[in-house]
């Protein structure tokens, strides 16, 4: 059963590291929460825990759409002309492929898009860059549609937000957290234990990845 990873980790650490976590102690709870969140995302990426979707409303004459910051890797992009019936799967292509399809492919319009390409690494957030440009991750569809109506794109992707049960928290996340906290504890005896906890984390992480990759067959296949 899924648990709140921040709460579960904090409870486990309070048991294993008595009198070290809380107000006025070596580790503030807010720090544990923030660190747990980022560590859990690392685990979610490596083990490919959760696939989810992002629905994007199509816009008239628009080819480029922003991806969410929790997107790690796109698995599939689908198109629904009516906004609900996803009956078209877009093919993943490179910009060079698009050049071969049409020299001025950015100007092409059609009834629905047939292919997509990606800029930047999925998950890079939207931040304004220089010269009015950007670095954030987007998908560019081809051809764009002149009149989008209620059409939507659905991006199926590997998510950075994982789902954790108690066993995963205890076996994978807690050892990693302890490795980090021990390494920075300032106590030499504790610091010496950091690599041991890290090794424990690596082993548990591999086991989890193997278990999950059997569970989610779609993570093994790639388009293109």
């Amino acid at each position: 059963m899924p648990v709140s990873v921040t709460t579960a980790v904090k409870e486990a650490l309070k048991i294993d590291m008595p009198r070290q976590i809380g107000p006025g102690r070596r580790w503030e709870e807010a720090l544990i929460d923030a660190l747990t969140t980022t560590v859990a995302r690392e685990v979610a990426e490596y083990c490919e825990l959760v696939y989810t979707t992002q629905e994007i409303s199509a816009v008239d004459d628009t080819a480029e759409y922003a991806l969410g910051s929790n997107c790690i890797e796109i698995y599939q992009v689908e198109w629904a002309s009516d906004g609900s019936t996803y009956d078209t799967i877009l093919k993943a292509v490179t910009m060079e492929d698009l050049d071969n399809v049409s020299r001025l492919w950015r100007d092409d319009t059609g009834t629905w898009p047939a292919r997509y390409t990606v800029t930047s690494t999925p998950g890079v957030p939207a931040i304004a860059g220089i010269n009015g440009g950007s670095t954030y991750s987007t998908i560019i569809v081809h051809p764009k549609v002149s009149t989008a109506g209620s059409a939507t794109l659905r991006v199926r992707f590997l998510s950075a937000v994982g789902v954790f049960d108690q066993h995963t928290v205890d076996g994978v996340v807690v050892p990693y957290m302890k490795a980090l906290l021990y390494a920075s504890s300032g106590d030499q005896k504790m610091a010496k234990d950091a690599p041991r906890y890290y090794a424990k984390y690596l082993e548990a992480r591999e086991n989890l990845k193997q278990a999950v990759s059997h569970e989610y067959a779609e993570s093994l296949g790639r388009i293109g």
Binding site: N70, I72, P125, I127, A160
Partner: peptide
């Protein structure tokens, strides 16, 4: 390189969330 170093302390780190560490 990250293109907005002057403002990035106030904004989201220019990395996917899974690798903020």
């Amino acid at each position: 390189y990250p293109t907005n170093p002057a403002a990035y302390m106030l904004e989201q780190i220019e990395l996917p969330t899974w690798c903020h560490n």
